[in-house]
């Protein structure tokens, strides 16, 4: 009987507090930190969402080479960041870039494949250079791989989702997504100096 009371008291001490088994963006290692950057940093996520919406408004023949360039540039971003210690993407710059990308997407202007590829590459570089500077080779490689995969998955998923929605609801559904990107960009640009 006493033993049971003792067990009850012991169980009382074991009542759970806030058990944080995973810090979502804590020390996950360089690969996963790079992978989650588009989600952890709203400024990065915004410009990547902008290019995904723009790609969704372009023909698939234009999207294929642009996506390859995006992937390559996403790999180079962390390396450039290491060589030239570039500043991270601030909310005002991200907002202005998003306004341009979303604006082009709203009107659904068909752009030359080369221009779209350059834009995709530039956005991937912008998103890739954000992050901590890593000095050891292993961390740098893991971070680079994670960043490239994260950017690729984020853009590909958003592009695919929009493409499916447009095929079912009509091309103008993409314009709605473009207007969302512009709206967020306008407000981001109106917050100078604010953290993303």
């Amino acid at each position: 009987m006493r033993l049971r009371y003792l067990a009850g008291a012991f169980a009382f001490f074991l009542q759970p507090g806030t058990a944080q088994s995973h810090e979502a963006f804590g020390d996950l290692g360089p690969f996963y930190q790079g992978l989650l950057h588009p989600l952890a940093d709203p400024a990065q996520g915004l410009v990547l969402a902008g290019i995904a919406v723009l790609l969704a408004r372009q023909p698939v023949q234009v999207v294929r080479p642009a996506f390859l360039v995006l992937l390559l540039c996403a790999c180079f971003g962390p390396l450039i960041h290491l060589a030239v210690s570039t500043p991270s993407l601030d909310s005002r710059s991200a907002g202005l870039v998003a306004v341009i990308l979303g604006g082009v997407a709203i009107f659904g202007i068909a752009l030359p494949a080369g221009l779209v590829a350059i834009m995709a590459g530039a956005i991937a570089l912008l998103a890739g250079i954000a992050g901590d500077v890593l000095t050891d080779v292993r961390s740098l490689l893991l971070s680079t791989g994670g960043t490239a995969v994260g950017i690729a998955i984020f853009v590909l998923f958003l592009w695919a989702a929009l493409d499916i929605i447009q095929s079912r609801l009509g091309r103008l559904a993409g314009a709605v997504a473009g207007s969302w990107v512009v709206a967020i960009g306008v407000m981001a640009a109106a917050l100078p100096g604010a953290p993303a």
Binding site: F12, Q15, P16, G17, T18, A19, Q20, S21, H22, E23, A24
Partner: peptide
């Protein structure tokens, strides 16, 4: 008495 157990913060 217990607080919620949050796996992900």
């Amino acid at each position: 008495a217990s607080t919620p157990a949050l796996a992900h913060s």
